[in-house]
Design a protein around this nucleic acid. Sequence first.
DNA 1: GACAAGGCCTCTGTATACACTGATGCGCAA
DNA 2: TTGCGCATCAGTGTATACAGAGGCCTTGTC
Lengths: 225, 225
Amino acid sequence: MRASDRAYEALREDIVEWRLLPGQVLGEVEQSERFGISRTPIREALSRLTADGLAEAHRGRGVVVSQVSLEDVRALFELREALDCRAARLAARRRDPVVFQELAAELEAVVAQLHGPGTDRAEYYDLVERMDRAIDEATANPYLTAAQRSLRLHLARVRRLSRTNPDRLARAAAEHAQIARAVADGCEELAEAATRVHLANSLQAVLTTPVREWVQPAPPLDAAG
Amino acid sequence: MRASDRAYEALREDIVEWRLLPGQVLGEVEQSERFGISRTPIREALSRLTADGLAEAHRGRGVVVSQVSLEDVRALFELREALDCRAARLAARRRDPVVFQELAAELEAVVAQLHGPGTDRAEYYDLVERMDRAIDEATANPYLTAAQRSLRLHLARVRRLSRTNPDRLARAAAEHAQIARAVADGCEELAEAATRVHLANSLQAVLTTPVREWVQPAPPLDAAG
DNA sequence: GACAAGGCCTCTGTATACACTGATGCGCAA
DNA sequence: TTGCGCATCAGTGTATACAGAGGCCTTGTC
């Protein structure tokens, strides 16, 4: 694996997990010393982060971690509704029924678990990730998948801001199960509707959950940010 | 302007305009000699092209121009329907009426011109570009706009494959005018419907227009392509 | 004659040196 | 005291050198 790939993934995780806060300056020399590699692969990593929209290049000041606001959450969910609804329709049209029947069954099992005392978040998150991949595969549309990849990166970042309510988690799992079932049945309309319901509830949950701090500490940049 | 920016834009144009064909290998040394700059900024340019999806990195063989097929056209229009329809809705909701009234008026004027003998393609294409920008601004969604930017890059490439029929051009202008009018009137449903109609007709036109060669000359790569 | 193995060679991946742009801070003048 | 200008410097942008990996050609053997 290339050094630039390692640096890119490490920096990306740091940004998504809020170990690197918005406004943070990512100096080339500083990061190259941190990873023990030269500036060249660091430049490549920072370039990719900028292309992802997780960082922004400021002339003469280098690369800084991009800001995230409540307005961004609204914008992200607007795009997500467009992409996820379309993806759900296409997946319902072209899916392998067995794959989504199994996913639906597993999700329904997780719903039952989540209603109990021992909430196994990890299994649910793993299932959601597998379902995302299954939908990507079913849509058979590399451009749509690429757009989804970029979007999910930003969604993961804003999701880390708020701690998901256990009740919400159980309902979200049920909603996912419903989507999987609709896709398995090949019902496009229902798959899209279920997706829209899930997104509306998810956005509602994010907006009403007490977040750590929406307004990040003022960046060291003056008017440029 | 940075050397890497110049190289990126030049290479991007070369790919979109089919001066660089799919499968073409973009050697770092070769391109650095062509632009008269060193390999470092070339690497940055190739990295950005890869992120755009216009090129692909093959281990040990460098970067090659990505393939485009009829299947890609279908996939692109699927994504476009999702993005453009959503953008039309949002634009209709948040637009500045004056901007789109003026665009509608100009487009309607162009429609009349295109029905005459002297077809001024340039003015129409310029108007379409301005309308894209106006919709981007009206949607006020940077993530949606970013997805659109990437998509339009690929669309521009496949569009260059076929020569647009003059009749189709006039109809497309009329469809654009209708979209602009609907957005100006703030009618979300009509804006989305008009967009969907326009996309269906555009795809139909692309698929039925005799293209130069869908199957490009076999790439110098064996099974990797 | 064909296939496999090994060596050579080209090209990428990385490191480092240098130049230049832009920011920052201090000093001088109004 | 404040504003403007210059100097200094930190940090990016670019060039180049070096090493390692992968491809291809050649040669030997079956």
